[in-house]
């Protein structure tokens, strides 16, 4: 843009400035606290998932119950790490930073999603939401949820160009090499564990406690954390790339993603506070022209 045309471009109106001021004022109420519930969720969920293994192997937990519990644990494993990715638990340089990093790294081990890779690629999702070339989550786009599930499955196939791998190659993040090494180590560890369990006589247990629950968890996460809040993934801009929406399965079963719009507007607000923040901000956001599908 030339200097002349930049000068001609209209700035925000007085009303827009007032709306932004109110939006930021409300958001500040929800910033700055340590979301201990997310710390407990992340570490407790990981401990619960670990405990499923000895309980099942010892015959204290039936395999079918272990399968259901493991699927639940793996599905719930992403969000605490997501809080850590945004430094919501503790910022860099603060006393509890180690806890932020611990939750980030540990909670997604069952999902086999390395924390640093997740954060580097997630930043690109925030910067380029719904961009077909630059948003690493764009592969979950689909006209219907069934199509999104199918597209997500296809994107996980061995010959598919992994969007996260491409995003990591594109990244100029100084930690990119470290993230790549951690991703390789975690994946090698995962497949080595499956192989060791399988050849030790526990193939069915490995399939039903980790492999299949992980596939189901990834599908659920992609559907509710990526497809649903950004559907139809065609719009861009601060108030249009993410929607407020009424989930047919409710707020809890949709992992709080009805309010994902708040996360994109104010990424440091803890997940459990996004609903309250939305209700308080709703009138302001409606005037800004957000996409509201029934909330």
């Amino acid at each position: 843009m030339s200097r002349a045309s930049a000068a001609e471009a209209p700035g925000p109106s007085a009303r827009e400035r007032e709306l932004l001021r109110r939006e930021v004022e409300i958001s500040r109420k929800y910033l700055g606290r340590v979301p201990w519930e997310m710390v407990a969720w992340g570490l407790g969920n990981f401990a619960l998932w670990l405990s499923i293994w000895p309980l099942t192997f010892a015959g204290m937990l039936p395999l079918w119950a272990g399968f259901l519990l493991s699927t639940l644990c793996i599905t719930l494993s992403y969000l605490p790490s997501h809080e850590a990715q945004h430094s919501i638990i503790a910022s860099r340089g603060t006393k509890l930073r180690w806890l932020n990093e611990l939750v980030g790294h540990v909670s997604t081990i069952p999902l086999v999603l390395p924390y640093r890779l997740a954060w580097i690629t997630h930043r690109q999702h925030h910067a380029h939401t719904n961009d077909p070339d630059l948003d690493p989550d764009y592969g979950n786009k689909g006209d219907t949820w069934r199509q999104s599930v199918w597209n997500g499955l296809k994107a996980r196939q061995p010959g598919a160009d992994s969007a996260y791998k491409v995003a990591l190659q594109r990244s100029d993040d100084p930690d990119a090499d470290r993230a790549r090494a951690e991703a390789i180590a975690l994946n090698v560890g995962y497949y080595a564990a499956l192989t060791a369990l399988a050849w030790s006589g526990y193939a069915i247990e490995a399939a039903l406690l980790w492999w299949l629950p992980r596939q189901l968890g990834l599908t659920y996460i992609q559907l509710f954390l990526s497809w649903a809040p950004h559907h139809p993934m065609e719009e861009h801009g601060r108030y249009r790339d993410t929607r407020a929406w009424r989930s047919p399965v409710g707020t809890i079963a949709s992992l709080g993603m009805e309010y994902h719009l708040i996360h994109h507007l104010h990424p440091r607000i803890p997940l459990v506070d996004t609903g309250r923040a939305y209700r308080e901000m709703r009138d302001v956001l409606l005037e800004r022209g957000i996409r509201n599908d029934g909330l």
Binding site: P158, I184, N187, Y191, L194, T195, A198, W199, G201, A203, I204, A206, A207, W211
Partner: peptide
């Protein structure tokens, strides 16, 4: 090695899974 991942997965995981099933 990752390029041949599907084959390793077939031998390392699917084979014993089929046998034990």
């Amino acid at each position: 090695a990752f390029e041949w991942g599907p084959l390793w997965f077939g031998v390392g995981f699917i084979a014993p899974l089929v046998a034990q099933s």
